[in-house]
Amino acid sequence: MNEPDNRPSNRGFIKRAWWWVSRPSTRFALGTLVVAGGLLGVLLWGSFNWAMDLSNKEAFCVSCHEMRNTVYKELQETVHFTNRTGVRATCSDCHVPKEWHYKLIRKVQATNELFHKFMGTIDTPEKFEQQRLAMANHVWESMKASDSRECRNCHTKESMDLSKQSRPAQRMHKFAVERGKTCIECHQGVAHNLPAGWVAPLATR
């Protein structure tokens, strides 16, 4: 009678995987493994983040999305692009969360955009304009739901000196606080054109 064959090659995938992680190494020293594992971890983590960062770059967004001649061009004409102090907000600053788990969720959601890229949903300026209102509403809804989290990465109520704002801005910001409003409820279209067919709310009340 032969002994049972315990070699990994004879096992199923899960058992095999378990075999690899549960058995101590007979070939490499523990220290080597820890150091190599650490380095590998750093490398993987780094490249993951590098990829994340790369996908946050303006050039990346503009390269594969249907925005070069529309929303990106519009952004360039706004104060978020060129201003007195030289601080620029680019696509990801407003559209990708900074916090890691929100960011991951956002990136996964962004794959939906790849689907529409594939389908050609907005591949002409005409199609883009047709969808602009729906897309804008989508962005505004999510910004409202997050209490304008991405706006607040740079702008906070606490660091706002109302006395340095214009007279109407002071008044409206006071109303916004009193009424529990969030940035996007008034500041739609700060970086892009507003969609045709969008009817401005008459009051912030």
Binding site: S166, R167, P168, A169, R171, M172, F175, C186, G189, N193, L194, W198, V199, A200, P201, L202, A203, T204
Partner: peptide, 20 residues
């Protein structure tokens, strides 16, 4: 007019000038 862009976009006067 500081709010020129808002006007061009069709935002209401009172979006900035409510009770002003």
């Amino acid at each position: 007019h500081k709010g020129a862009r808002s006007v061009r976009q069709g935002k209401a006067c009172i979006a900035c000038h409510e009770r002003d």
